[in-house]
Design a protein around this nucleic acid. Structure first.
Length: 180
DNA sequence: TAGGCCATCTGGTCCT
DNA sequence: AGGACCAGATGGCCTA
C-alpha cells in the first residue's frame, strides 16, 4: 500500500499536540500500530516533511474534551481499517479482471466499470455456448423450460443481443488503454 | 500547472 | 450505546 505522507504528518501532529509522551499513552495492544507510526515517521524524515507545515489540515479545536477526541481517534482508526479492507477488495477484483493496460493500475471507477461489463460478457458467452442446452434452459424448439441464469439474464437485459456485451467490453478495454 | 485519483479525517445517520 | 457506513472536505502525488 502506498503510504500517505499527509497521514504521516497528521499522526505526528496528533502525537505532538498531546501532552503525554507516546510511552505514557501507549497501551500494550497498540504495538502493531506503533510500528506503523514508526515507519511513517521514518518516511517522513526522508521526505523532510515537518508537522505543522502548509498542507496540514489544521486540527480543529475539540470543544467536547479529551474523551471525545479519544473516541474520535479510535473511530478514525476503524475507518482507516475499513477503507483498507475496501481497497483490498478492489485489488482482488483488479486481479481477476482481464485488461489490456496491465502495466498501469486500474482506477477504482475503471475497475468497477470493467468488472460490470466483464460479468455481462461472461454471462452472454455462457448463454451463447450453452445455446439453450443448460439444464432447465428454454428449449429453442418448444420454448419450454427456463434456467435461472437465463431468466435472470433476460430480466436484466431483455432482448439485447449477447454479442453487444462482448463488443462493449472490448471497446471499453481499448478506451481505457488509450487513457480516455 | 490543472485535473484526476487517492488516503485520511470528520460528523451525521443507520443498524445491531 | 457503540460500531458500521456514508459523503463532504482537504490536501498530496502523479501525469499530460
Amino acid at each position: 500500500m502506498k503510504t500517505n505522507p499527509r497521514s504521516t504528518r497528521r499522526r505526528l501532529e496528533i502525537e505532538l499536540d498531546d501532552d503525554e509522551s507516546p510511552e505514557q499513552q501507549t497501551s500494550s495492544e497498540d504495538e502493531d500500530e506503533n510500528d506503523k507510526c514508526y515507519v511513517y515517521k521514518e518516511k517522513n524524515k526522508s521526505k523532510n516533511l515537518e508537522p505543522g507545515k502548509s498542507g496540514n489540515r489544521r486540527k480543529r479545536p475539540s470543544p467536547l474534551g479529551k474523551e471525545h477526541s479519544v473516541r474520535r481517534l479510535e473511530s478514525n482508526e476503524r475507518e482507516r481499517q475499513r477503507m483498507h479492507k475496501l481497497n483490498n477488495a478492489f485489488q482482488a477484483l483488479r486481479e481477476v479482471i482481464p485488461h489490456v493496460r496491465a502495466e498501469k493500475k486500474l482506477s477504482k471507477i475503471e475497475t468497477l466499470t470493467l468488472a460490470k461489463n466483464y460479468i455481462n460478457t461472461l454471462t452472454a458467452t455462457i448463454l451463447n455456448m450453452s445455446n439453450g442446452c443448460l439444464p432447465g434452459a428454454p428449449n429453442t424448439e418448444t420454448g419450454s423450460g427456463g434456467g435461472k441464469l437465463y431468466q435472470h439474464y433476460q430480466q436484466q437485459h431483455g432482448e439485447e443481443d449477447n454479442d453487444e456485451h462482448l463488443e462493449k467490453y472490448s471497446t471499453q478495454i481499448h478506451s481505457f488503454r488509450q487513457g480516455s
